[in-house]
């Protein structure tokens, strides 16, 4: 249940939707995409009311990871290729541009070497990166990511952050749902914090523990030192590095 949400996201912004479990951040993203009905109010995507919106190829959606595996094995390449459907016509084989976009998407998340493996053989973090590659394959301008870092180990979070920073450099707009930002913190331009379905903060990024201050969410054990300078914690874990292609490279 969401109330009094008034939010405008500009082109090229990197927005983090934050808040405690049950604060409504995933619900907000699902409502923005038309997956949840609105009781009142309206959603515009690229200036078009949601009901009339047809330019789905401009949007890339990365759902929560639970949906990555189904009853029949699917290879990583096939999963990523299904993201290209936003730009494919019915009953046409894959064009050269389609194939190039799919392998480019695999490169960005660093999974090219696993393309023929079944999705179920990947680790949780790799599955999450495969889902990002699926959204990337459609070459969208606006990304919605629902909890991409949940249950992902630190090296994979780092690889994920690298992939997202490549997106940011390409000028993509990113809306990210996160409980905690971790290595993604350095990318965020704007944080929107929800509590009980309402926006309680909209502005510069906060540190993780500030989001959990009593005035924002449920009490949290961390102490907040207002006098300490706000700095972004950087991780120097070498971990899994995704080969990033330069933003000026061929697309």
């Amino acid at each position: 249940m969401l109330r009094h949400i008034d939010l405008a996201i500009g082109h090229g912004e990197f927005v983090a939707l934050m808040g405690a479990n049950g604060s409504g951040k995933s619900t907000l993203v699902r409502a923005l995409l038309g997956l949840r009905p609105l009781a009142t109010g309206e959603v515009d995507l690229f200036g078009t009311p949601l009901r009339q919106f047809r330019a789905w190829h401009r949007i890339g959606f990365v759902p929560q990871r639970a949906s990555a595996a189904a009853g029949v094995p699917a290879s990583v390449w096939e999963l990523v290729a299904s993201g290209r459907l936003t730009r494919r016509r019915l009953l046409r084989p894959l064009s050269r541009a389609d194939r190039a976009a799919i392998s480019d998407a695999l490169d960005v998340v660093g999974l090219s070497h696993r393309r023929t493996d079944a999705v179920s053989q990947l680790s949780g973090g790799q599955q999450q990166r495969a889902l990002i590659a699926r959204a990337l394959a459609g070459e969208p301008e606006l990304f919605f990511l629902d909890e991409p870092t949940a249950g992902v180990d630190l090296p994979n979070q780092q690889a994920l952050a690298d992939a997202l920073s490549a997106l940011k450099d390409r000028g993509a707009t990113v809306v990210l749902v996160a409980h905690e930002l971790g290595p993604l913190a350095r990318l965020v331009d704007r944080a929107v914090v929800l509590r009980d379905g309402r926006i309680v903060h909209d502005g510069p990024p906060l540190r993780d523990h500030e989001v959990h201050e009593p005035w924002m969410a449920e009490p949290h054990s961390h102490h907040h030192h207002p006098e300490s300078e706000v700095s972004v914690v950087r991780d120097h874990t070498p971990g899994v590095r995704a080969p990033l292609d330069p933003s000026e490279g061929p697309r």
Partner: peptide, 9 residues
């Protein structure tokens, strides 16, 4: 494979 993703696509 993923009905919600397909709808957003």
């Amino acid at each position: 494979q993923d009905a919600e993703f397909a709808r957003v696509a």
